[in-house]
């Protein structure tokens, strides 16, 4: 079953999501990857305000290709998330509830997900052309000097993701392969 969800992602909405759920996200999300996260962390460490509204926000780890004329955005699939592991817990503590990426997260991120009530979604890596079709608006809202790594505000429609780590810390990267292997052995 596919669940339709709208941003902002409140903690109540987050709690209803279970590991392995297929979801279609509609609404505003922000992009940020390595360089932008580093700058956000520096602001947090210096008690300075962030350039985006972090409360109930969803951050998509992506650095899109440049758009051609007439395009909203270029290819825009997820980047590997563990590089944001040093930064995500602080942002979750401040109110971020959703992350979209691909690949494993460390214990500190999973602890923050459980403690504060957040969710880690996976989008399909290497499907940037397909995923770009779900992005209807795109605007740089911070750090334009970073180019593809700038923070973009995106309006997405039915953006397909899967719940990889839910607010209880259940992890699809452990459960999925295990279930497949069990089933495979049984047959």
């Amino acid at each position: 079953m596919t669940i339709k969800i709208h941003t902002p992602l409140t903690r109540e909405k987050v709690k209803e999501l279970k590991v392995g759920d297929s979801c279609l996200i509609t609404g505003t999300i922000y992009t940020a990857r390595d360089a932008a996260h580093k700058r956000l962390k520096e602001l947090i460490d210096n008690d300075k305000p962030l350039p985006i509204d972090i409360e109930n926000s969803t951050i998509y780890f992506v650095g899109p290709t440049p758009s051609k004329s007439g395009q909203v955005i270029g290819s825009a699939g997820p980047t590997t998330s563990y590089r944001m592991d040093d930064y995500s817990p602080d942002l979750i503590k401040l109110g971020q509830t959703g992350m979209i990426g691909k690949g494993k997260r460390n214990g500190a991120v999973i602890d923050a997900i459980k403690t504060y009530g957040a969710v880690y979604f996976g989008a399909i890596g290497g499907c940037g052309a397909l995923l770009s079709k779900c992005i209807k608006k795109c605007k740089v809202v911070a750090y334009p000097d970073l180019g593809a790594e700038a923070i973009h505000k995106l309006e997405v429609e039915d953006f397909p993701v899967v719940v990889v780590i839910d607010s209880h810390g259940n992890n699809l990267y452990e459960i999925g392969p295990k279930n497949y292997l069990t089933q495979n052995k049984a047959e």
Binding site: G74, S75, C127, G128, L130, L131, Q183
Partner: peptide, 30 residues
């Protein structure tokens, strides 16, 4: 044989078909 896996592979196929047709980068990490 695994339905989720099959679904992902089909989306990967759809992705490279779009890229082919529209001259788009297959992946944003070029």
């Amino acid at each position: 044989p695994w339905p989720t896996a099959k679904d992902i592979l089909n989306q990967i196929i759809e992705n490279y078909e779009i890229a082919d047709r529209e001259n788009l980068p297959i992946c944003q990490d070029t």
